[in-house]
Amino acid sequence: MTRKSSLDGIESAPRWIVVFLGAYLIVHLLALYLWNMVGQAFPVQGTSGGTSALSVTAMAAVELWLCVLVLRSFPAGAPLRRAWMLITFAAAAQAVSGGLAQLLGSNWLLNPLMWGGHARTGLIEQIRRGALIAGGPVQLALLAAGMLAALRVLRKFGFWVRPSAADWAVCGIIYVLTLFRFGEAGAASLAGRPIGVEDWISLAGLPVLCVLFLEAMLLRQSVVHMGNGLISRCWVAFMCGIFLMGAGELALWVIPHYWHAWPLDMIASLIRFPTAAVFALAPACQVAAQRRAIKPASDGSEDLATGVPALAR
């Protein structure tokens, strides 16, 4: 056997992502706990204006890199190549959006548009809006198209079941949220209250999120029929990512209505980073499965020549 993986460490990418996610959540929850303990005496920092935090952008970059690795393993004409290409574009949209928003769309000292004595605020604002569109409706649309392509392949292999009543009920929550959001926007518009560009961009992404949610439910049913294997975990991660995305939208809409004192930016970052991490987990699981297959059997504790792993015998 001469097969040897040149990126041995990449097999443990899912584990690293989970470790980072755990550490991030512990630190954030601890900060929230301390903030609450001291009677909310100090301001809690968070990103503003709906732009992605640096941690979210970094995780999106990791996702993009892993997606490119997966995409390269599927040659032209492979059934899943189209799906992975669209998922890679979605990851790229998220990473580029975060990068642009952080580097050129913020009023900070290292932004080149702020140099030279006068800040080009108009251009900075345009870049920020562009980043929001790329990381919002564009990313969602690309992801929805990618999921649709993946579902078609799953259907071809018999992993296709119609959504159950519970699936429709979960989807219904997002559909109701979408209706409420559009209703609110319509009411505000009729009352003559201005609606921010960020809100419009967010609203534009909601119908796509509804489609994505339905796809996530179909994906869930397909994965249930597939089982809990290494490949299945990749699609489970996508399903969880979409679910978290929807849950985040719901939470960020509900919290300002009922809990005014809660630090919304902090909560937003608490939702967005796990979502980005779970999305990064999907290609990481796929890469891990591929590397495990390519790795010579003699390297591991499992002896494929005897048919079953040593521990299972």
Binding site: F159, V224, H225, M226, G227, N228, G229, L230, I231, S232, A289, A293, L304, G307, V308, P309, A312
Partner: peptide, 16 residues
């Protein structure tokens, strides 16, 4: 047996 194990590992028992 080997195919069953491979399918179970990469997809899951129902797929196998």
């Amino acid at each position: 047996a080997r195919l069953r194990w491979q399918m179970g590992t990469y997809f899951g028992s129902p797929a196998a």
